[in-house]
Amino acid sequence: MPTLDDLPPYRRAKLLWDFAHFGVDGINDMIWERAGKPCHLSGTAKPSSPRVAVLGGDGRYHLMSDGRMICAKGRAEQGWKHVQSCSWTEIAGVLVDGYRAGGTYGSVEQVWFVQPVAEGVPPSSVPPEQRCQYGTYGVFHFWPPPPAKTAVVRRLRTALVEALGEDCHLCGALPGAMVDHDYSTGMVRGLLCKLCNRTVEECPHVDACPKADYMSNPPAAYLALPYPQYLAWEPKESTRARKVELLGFDPLAEWRPAH
Rank of each mutant, 00 (worst) to 15 (best):
R157G: 03
E166A: 12
V179C: 06
G26W: 12
R34S: 10
K243Q: 09
T150K: 15
H21F: 11
D182V: 04
G102E: 10
A72D: 05
R51L: 05
R155K: 13
S85R: 14
P210Q: 03
A220Y: 02
E129P: 04
R75D: 05
M1G: 08
C71K: 01
E201H: 13
D207A: 06
Q133W: 12
V108E: 12
G23E: 05
D213A: 12
L63G: 00
D180M: 00
D182N: 11
K81M: 02
C132D: 04
R131Y: 05
L170S: 06
L160E: 02
G103N: 14
D207E: 10
A241M: 10
V117Y: 12
A92W: 11
A220R: 01
P251S: 08
P47A: 08
E201T: 13
I31M: 04
G103D: 09
A151Y: 06
S49N: 04
R131M: 04
A212N: 06
W112C: 00
G248T: 09
C196K: 00
R189E: 06
T239S: 12
G79C: 06
T185R: 00
T199Q: 09
A221H: 08
F142I: 05
T44I: 13
Y105K: 12
A35E: 14
R75K: 13
H21K: 12
G26M: 05
R11N: 05
M69E: 11
A72E: 01
A35V: 05
A177I: 01
T44N: 09
T89D: 05
P175F: 02
G176K: 00
D6P: 11
T3A: 15
P128W: 08
